[in-house]
Amino acid sequence: MADSPRCKDGRRARSDCHEGRAVASRDYLRSLTRGEVRCTVTGRDTYGRALARCVSGGVDLNKAMVRAGMARRYR
C-alpha cells in the first residue's frame, strides 16, 4: 500500500507505491466480492502474519487479484 513504511521512506521507487494503484486494487477487490467472504488461513509469512485463501460467490479472490495485476503471489 502507498502508505506503508517501505513506500514512505523513499528507499524504493516502486510502481505499486503509488496511491492510485492502492485505490484501484481496493476498488477491484470490492467489485469481486459477492455477499459473504470466506477466508481460510493456509500458513504464516516470515513476520508471523496470516496467509489466507479467500473466496466470495465462488470466486477465488486471491487468484483474481493476481491475474488482474492487482496483487502479487507470496513466495
Rank of each mutant, 00 (worst) to 15 (best):
V23L: 14
S31G: 10
E36S: 07
V23I: 14
D60A: 01
R26N: 10
E19F: 04
R75N: 11
A22D: 14
V59Y: 04
M1D: 13
N62G: 10
A71F: 02
A64Q: 08
A64W: 02
R34A: 02
A13S: 14
R53L: 06
A13G: 09
T42N: 04
D45I: 10
S4P: 08
T46V: 14
N62V: 00
T42D: 06
P5D: 13
S25I: 03
D9P: 01
A22P: 01
A52K: 10
G69K: 13
R14A: 15
T42Q: 08
S56K: 05
Y28N: 04
C17I: 04
G35I: 05
G35V: 06
D16C: 07
L61P: 00
E36V: 04
R73A: 14
M70K: 15
H18G: 13
A22H: 06
S31I: 06
S31L: 11
S31Q: 12
L29E: 02
G57C: 09
S56G: 07
T40A: 11
C39P: 00
R6Y: 13
G57S: 08
A71M: 13
D3M: 06
R67F: 06
R53V: 00
A64G: 03
T33H: 05
R26F: 03
A13V: 09
R49C: 02
A52G: 02
H18Y: 12
T40Q: 13
R73E: 13
R73C: 01
K63A: 14
A24F: 02
V23Q: 15
N62L: 07
L51M: 13
A68H: 01
D60G: 00
R26M: 11
G20K: 15
D27E: 15
Y74F: 15
V59S: 02
R38P: 00
A13P: 03
A2G: 04
R6K: 15
L32R: 06
R72S: 02
